[in-house]
């Protein structure tokens, strides 16, 4: 499509056919992420085992394609990984957007690397990092014993 190269197939596909946009049955970590500038609002749900491995994850919410697709790509990448590894990848993602990541690092992000051009659109950066930022905050929280209870907390990109 000539009118916009940024919204490539990877992005639109994750937006229209997300793999992880639903509610997990038994998450033990839940956090809402907000991006007031775009009105993006996601609820990230993770299931982490006693060793700190993210065994499953999902998100739900409303927002622009960039925020939704980016969260979907993020979950693709971090499910099955230890939280420290997930945070390391989030750090690469954020540095990619600041143009501070190496090609090798960007390769590690797999499909999420396709969002690198967002750095040309400063107003959309917050949308792209919303899911990642929410995940970074969430994995360091104490998993809840009683799954299903939403703490009501929220993080914001502001």
């Amino acid at each position: 499509m000539a009118i916009n190269a940024f919204y490539n197939e990877i992005l639109t596909d994750h937006n229209l056919h997300p793999m992880h946009k639903y509610n997990l049955k038994d998450p033990n970590l839940i956090l809402e992420g907000l991006n007031p500038s775009c009105g993006d609002d996601i609820v990230l749900q993770l299931k982490m085992d006693d060793n700190g491995v993210i065994v499953d994850g999902s998100y739900n919410g409303d927002g622009c394609a960039v925020s939704m697709a980016s969260a979907d790509m993020m979950l693709d990448l971090v499910i099955g990984k230890h939280k420290d590894e997930a945070k390391r990848l989030a750090d690469i993602f954020v540095r990619m957007i600041k143009k501070e990541a190496t090609e090798e690092e960007i390769e590690e992000l797999e499909e999420a690397g396709s969002l690198r051009d967002i750095s040309h659109m400063p107003s959309r950066v917050k949308c792209a990092v919303l899911g990642w930022h929410t995940m970074e905050e969430l994995v360091d929280k104490e998993p809840i014993k009683n799954p299903g209870e939403h703490s009501g907390e929220a993080v914001s990109t502001e």
């Binding site: 009118i3 940024f6 919204y7 775009c38 009105g39 622009c64 394609a65 960039v66 959309r124």
Partner: peptide, 14 residues
């Protein structure tokens, strides 16, 4: 099916 911020971003790009 299209979020207004994606709409305005595409307009801006053009």
């Amino acid at each position: 099916g299209v979020h207004p911020h994606d709409i305005s971003a595409i307009f801006a790009d053009n």
